[in-house]
Design a protein around this nucleic acid. Structure first.
Lengths: 237, 237
DNA sequence: ACCTGAACACCGTTCAAGT
DNA sequence: ACCTGAACACCGTTCAAGT
C-alpha cells in the first residue's frame, strides 16, 4: 500500500507531507526513533567520516538490524536529509546581542563555516535538500527579517539570505578535496607553480611562493566582505 | 614496488608527480588510454547520471574488463579527478572579444554555470581537487591577469579569481538536490510557507506566493553582482 | 607484456519467517 | 505488531592464471 510514486526526499512536497502528518504519526514508545537514528548518523559521520555512513554500520552502532532502520526511514537518502536537518540545528547559533547588522551577519557566517569545518563529514551531504526543514526555515525567517529591517525588499532579503547560505556552504564544499592550510600541501603547490612554463604562466611562476600560501580562508573572507559591501551599497544609496 | 604511502588524488603532490612524469610515461599504442577512459566517464555521467559512474559500467561501455581500467588509473577517486580536469577544459570558454572587465567576468561566470547546469552529473564530483590541473591553472593564470590588469594586487587577484570559481561551482552544488525552477516544486513550496505558524514565521507566511518563486537563479545573480560590485568599489576607491 | 575471470569484502534494499 | 536473518543485485579492488 505504499505510494506508487514515492516523493523524493528534500523536495517541498516531501517536507510538506512530513510537517502535515507530524501529529497523526504514531508516537508509541520505541527503542528506536527517527531522532535517535539521525543523531547516530551524525556521530558516525564525525567519528569515521563521510564514507562510513552506511546502513550496516549505523545498525551496528544502534545495535539493531539493518532492516529495522527502514521502519523509520524509507531510504538512505531520506536518512541523510533528516540528519542534515539536525545538523543545521546544531550549526545555527544566535549571534551575540548588540551587534550591528554587518557584524551580526559576519558573525553568523563565520560561526556556521566553523561548524562545517569542525564536522567535515557532514559537508558532502549538504546539497540544499535541508533548506525547507523546520530548523532551516526558522533560520531563514530570522535572516530575512534582519535584511528587511535594514531596508531591503522581502524578495531581495530572501535572495540575499540564500546567497549567504550558498556561499558559506559552497565555499567549504568546493574546498573539501584538498587542505590548503597544510604546510606540506603549500610546499608542493609552490613547486608546482614554479615548475610551470613561464611564458604561458608568467604570474603563477613569478609569484609562486606568495600564491602557494593563499588558501580557502582568503577566498572566503574576500567573498564574504564582497557580499556585505554589496548590501551596504544597496541600503546607503 | 608501489609507493607505500599512496599520494591522494588532487593534492599538489599528486598533480606535481603527474606533470613531472608526463614525458617519461610509456606512450605505446593501446586500445585504452587515460583520455579515453576519462571521456567515457564524462559521457556516462551525462547520459546516466552521477550514480552510474561505476568501474563496472565504465568497463562495459569501453568493452574491456574492470581490471583493465586499473592499468591506467590507480583508483576510482583518481579517475574522477582526471575526468573533472577534462570537464573543466570543456566548460571554460574564452569570452567574446571587446568586452569590458565586468562584462567579461560576468560572461565567464554565466558560461561556466550554464555548462554545469547542462551537465548536472558532473557537479557532485567538483570538490576542488581539479583546481591544480593544467587546464584549471591556465584558466587561473588568465583570470589573475585579468584582475591584475584592472589594478588588484597579485594576491587579491588570486583570492578574487578563486572566490568566483568557488561561488559559481558552490551555488550550483548547493542547489543540486532540488529544482527550484520546477512549477510543481514552487506550488508545494508555497503551500509549505502558507502552512507555517504566522506568529513564528510572519514574513514567510505573508509573502508565501512571492517567495515561493525565488530560486537558485536569483541567489546566483545577487551573489555575482555583489562580487562584481566589490571589485568595482576596490578599484575605483 | 598485457589482459581477464573470479574472487573478496563490502554496499542498499527487500521480504518471508519468526516471536 | 514488531523485528530479523538471509538473500538479491549491486559496489571497488585484487590477483592468480591465462595468452
Amino acid at each position: 500500500m505504499d505510494d506508487p510514486t514515492p516523493i523524493r526526499a528534500g523536495t517541498a512536497a516531501w517536507w510538506l507531507a512530513r510537517t502535515e502528518n507530524a501529529d497523526d504519526r504514531p508516537r508509541r514508545r520505541r527503542m528506536l526513533s527517527l531522532e535517535l537514528i539521525a543523531d547516530a548518523a551524525l556521530s558516525l559521520l564525525d567519528t569515521e567520516g563521510a564514507e562510513a555512513l552506511t546502513m550496516r554500520r549505523l545498525a551496528q552502532r544502534l545495535e539493531c538490524s539493518q532492516a529495522a532502520l527502514y521502519r523509520h526511514v524509507t531510504s538512505r537518502d531520506e536518512l541523510v536529509v533528516v540528519a542534515m536537518d539536525r545538523a543545521v540545528g546544531l550549526g545555527l547559533r544566535p549571534p551575540p546581542e548588540g551587534l550591528g547588522w554587518r557584524e551580526s551577519v559576519e558573525w553568523q557566517s563565520h560561526s556556521f563555516r566553523d561548524f562545517l569545518l569542525a564536522h567535515p563529514g557532514l559537508v558532502v551531504f549538504m546539497r540544499g535538500t535541508e533548506r525547507l526543514s523546520p530548523t532551516s526555515l526558522s533560520g531563514l525567517e530570522h535572516s530575512i527579517a534582519q535584511f528587511v529591517g535594514i531596508g531591503l525588499t522581502v524578495r531581495e532579503a530572501y535572495a540575499t539570505a540564500s546567497a549567504f547560505a550558498t556561499f558559506v556552504v559552497g565555499s567549504v564544499q568546493f574546498n573539501l578535496g584538498v587542505d590548503t592550510a597544510d604546510p606540506e600541501e603549500q610546499r608542493m603547490r609552490r613547486r608546482l607553480y614554479e615548475g610551470l612554463d613561464p611564458d604561458r604562466h608568467p604570474i603563477l611562476t613569478a609569484h609562486a611562493e606568495e600564491l602557494s600560501r593563499v588558501g580557502s580562508r582568503d577566498e572566503f573572507e574576500f567573498g564574504l566582505a564582497a557580499l556585505l559591501d554589496a548590501i551596504e551599497a544597496r541600503i546607503t544609496g
